[in-house]
Design a protein around this nucleic acid. Structure first.
Lengths: 232, 232
DNA sequence: CGACGATTTGAATAGGATCAATGGGAGTGG
DNA sequence: CCACTCCCATTGATCCTATTCAAATCGTCG
């Protein structure tokens, strides 16, 4: 693994305050691999053999049941996934596949668990990380249960807009198919949702979106920091 | 707090392997209170001042946004809630109210966090507990996104049936209104869902339900251990 | 140019929600 | 013991949101 990559991982909240030597142990055991797009990395139901860190690219977490499939989350650099399964020595609850060509660190579960035992600071970071993951899913669950598709889209647009500087224009970070999956709707329905938002100043040109009437969009979106804030 | 109650709390996975003296400290700081039904214990958005353990009764976790409200979970004895907010020193993401007269232990957040720092075993239990909470919400999220209302009901009935011995008959643990909220539907829709299940051998007499054709019900339910199993 | 995937649009349908009205105990008070 | 009330549950009718299936467009890339 390259030095700058090691450094980047080390700077993750999860690893930042852990003991240098324990970090070294973990990274020695780790694999770094590059995968093309659309590779299935893990499959729900399989034992959690590895913990994953996305260095570059993008990974989609999804789940299946009956004949249906749903997107649970998209993980971008530098992000991790499937931590809970690793810690509980359980099977994965979600599947994962690359949605872009991606560089990914795989750390054997045993090494993660060992580090938790050996390094109190790491255990502490782990608790914060897990609590954060938990709260993220709770927010997502609230988002889905308390909002219509149009409201979810409006809030998501405002979030991206904020992230990109809030100057009235923004770029969708994913293609529309993926965005639809992420928001829990079909591509057709996303297209219609964009139309519904047109009177609220949402102007779509491919993946570029102009927001020409932020105030009325915000009124519609009724955003809520207990759902939309990344922190808190 | 009574001795037998202390013992029961001590036997929770969360507290079982923690240091005796740290457990003593925590319990000294704790309050035990009895609340009537329908008391709002916490409100989403408030700072997480206490960690809660339900000793007796039942607590509903719910969330609001826009004018809507949704049930997130029901906590029965001996169960805990709102752990993640306490650990992150954040605000509550969910509100809670008693749905029965309930005896509840309230532990100041600071004491919980202190115990995590002082007791490595406790930190370890905390990680397992949090990972479990996370996985529970993920399962709930999958349940909601991948199944129709009828399927959710069918699976829930099979779970209760299993819990109660699996002899072809079962008792609903909540009234139908609550059950509906828990399954993410309206009472009207629950009633119709029961009707839909009649041809699959589901016979409703008040809160008593007979399952006379488990095989066909199971076929409809297509239960999935990655959604329905409490463990794994 | 032609092919292919992504996106949009249209029409029909399904799953749930909402609103309104009715039925059915459980508990209360006479 | 019976009538009354209230709340829960059911049923019917209608509406709304979102999905599905089908077809038309658009854009990009070889």
């Amino acid at each position: 693994m390259r030095q700058d990559e090691l450094k980047e991982i080390r700077e993750l909240d999860l690893f930042r305050s852990m003991d240098e030597s324990v970090f070294g142990d973990i990274m020695n055991a780790a694999y770094l691999q590059t995968f093309p797009s659309q590779v299935e990395l893990i499959r729900e139901g399989d034992p959690a053999d590895f913990f994953y860190v996305v260095i570059e690219g993008c990974v989609e977490l999804f789940a299946r049941s009956n004949g249906r499939e749903t997107t649970m989350a998209l993980v971008r650099p530098i992000g991790t996934f499937i931590l809970a399964a690793v810690l509980k020595e359980a099977v994965y609850l979600m599947s994962a596949r690359t949605s872009l060509r991606s560089r990914i660190v795989m750390i054997p579960s045993r090494d993660i668990r060992q580090a938790v035992s050996n390094d109190q600071e790491f255990a502490r970071s782990m608790i914060i990380e897990l609590a954060g993951c938990y709260r993220a899913v709770v927010k997502e669950h609230k988002n889905l249960k308390l909002r219509t598709a149009v409201e979810r889209l409006a809030n998501r647009l405002m979030k991206y807009h904020q992230d990109q500087g809030g100057n009235g224009s923004m770029e969708l970070p994913y293609d529309k198919k993926t965005l639809a999956a992420l928001l829990g709707m079909t591509p057709e329905n996303l297209s219609r949702a964009f139309n519904t938002l047109k009177p609220y100043g949402v102007v779509v040109k491919g993946t570029r979106i102009d927001l020409t009437d932020l105030e009325s969009l915000a009124t519609l979106a009724k955003s809520n920091r207990l759902i939309d804030d990344r922190n808190t």
